[in-house]
């Protein structure tokens, strides 16, 4: 009797102990929920974050939303960014944040064109009379395109995330994520656009990076490791397992998207090797190599975006949390099924 009582007491203590271990964490993305965020939503929906002791809230981005200042301001714990240019800017301006994982080995940033308008070759794009580029692109990779590939400012028109102008002007080109916009174009415009991935033409940045504060890495590396590992597992499950719950979660955050679009997007991500190719297939999703980061930086310096000494590369990213083959076994299990 007394033993039973002591047992239940110990159970209650243990339960309360584990519930205290659920650490509240906020993760901000760079867009409204879409397939390119799928792995994170998966880890929330199927309880992977919970298993790692994390109570994760995903905070969406959007067209007029810029979540980036929230990280150094300590309003969020982790941040998703789209490319290394943001990280270079941070370090250049002494903002104490650092990249801890790269979920995409390829940046899906792409340029789309109408078929049969002569844009089948990438080199033809720079002569387009109208290039619809959004503000964040205008101030980053568009500058690289001008120097490295001869694109001209005269063609630039502001892109406000409305497909109308692109669909109605056959000679125009537009930016998009290779795994997203082409799907919408096909739905609304009833044609398959020509898609040119920037990463196929020298834009070698990693993408969908996880950033956090340098002080978090220093003072609480365990938290960072758990978040990174859980996110990686989330991505493996999302890409290769049952993503129904993740899809439902994304629909809840962003009602404008459909399951069909998400599925089409995942197919493209696999086909183009966005998430899980090259280093990632060996070292696990999220893999990063400092040499590649350095090489990308050199290219950006050549394109005039930075001066060589602007950025201390050692502060840009740390590989201490990745390249540990996390999720590789799980992937093998899931894909053998």
């Amino acid at each position: 009797m007394i033993w039973r009582f002591i047992q239940s007491l110990m159970l209650m203590v243990m339960l309360s102990a584990t519930s205290h271990a659920q650490q509240a964490v906020t993760f901000a993305t760079n867009w409204k929920a879409q397939a390119a965020h799928g792995g994170f939503y998966q880890a929330v929906a199927d309880g992977t974050y919970k298993k790692f002791g994390l109570d994760v809230t995903i905070r969406q981005g959007g067209p007029q939303v810029n979540n980036r200042p929230l990280l150094p301001a300590r309003r969020i714990d982790f941040l998703m960014t789209g490319n290394l240019l943001h990280s270079f800017d941070n370090v250049k301006n002494d903002i104490p944040v650092i990249v801890v994982a790269a979920m995409f080995q390829k940046d899906p940033q792409a340029l789309m064109a109408h078929p049969n308008q002569g844009y089948e070759n990438f080199s033809a794009l720079k002569n387009a009379p109208i290039a619809l580029i959004a503000k964040d692109g205008q101030f980053s990779w568009w500058q690289w395109l001008k120097v490295a590939h001869g694109f001209k400012d005269e063609a630039l028109r502001p892109y406000n995330y409305n497909l109308g102008p692109f669909l109605s002007q056959p000679k125009s080109i537009q930016q998009g994520y290779s795994v997203a916009e082409p799907i919408y174009v096909e739905q609304q415009g009833k044609f398959k656009p020509v898609v040119h991935l920037l990463s196929d033409h020298g834009y070698s940045t990693y993408s969908t990076l996880i950033e956090t504060r340098a002080e978090t890495v220093k003072n609480n590396p365990d938290l960072v490791q758990r978040f990174v590992d859980a996110s990686i597992i989330g991505w493996v499950n999302f890409m290769y397992g049952d993503r129904t719950a993740a899809n439902a979660r994304m629909l809840k955050d962003n009602p404008e998207i459909t399951v069909a679009e998400i599925e089409a997007s995942v197919a493209l991500m696999k086909q183009q090797g966005i998430v899980d190719s090259g280093d990632a297939s060996v070292d696990g999703i999220g893999a990063m190599k400092p040499a590649r980061i350095a090489d990308f930086y050199t290219q950006m310096v050549k394109a005039g975006l930075y001066q060589a000494k602007d950025v201390d590369l050692s502060k840009v990213a740390t590989t201490q949390f990745v390249n540990k083959q996390v999720g590789v076994e799980l992937k093998k299990i899931l894909t053998k099924q």
């Binding site: 810029n66 800017d89 980053s140 400012d153 005269e154 028109r157």
Partner: peptide, 18 residues
């Protein structure tokens, strides 16, 4: 667009590039 930009674009650009 491109070369025809005013102070608002400079503000946005500076904001994006922190």
């Amino acid at each position: 667009a491109g070369r025809e930009t005013g102070l608002a674009s400079r503000i946005l650009e500076a904001s994006f590039r922190t």
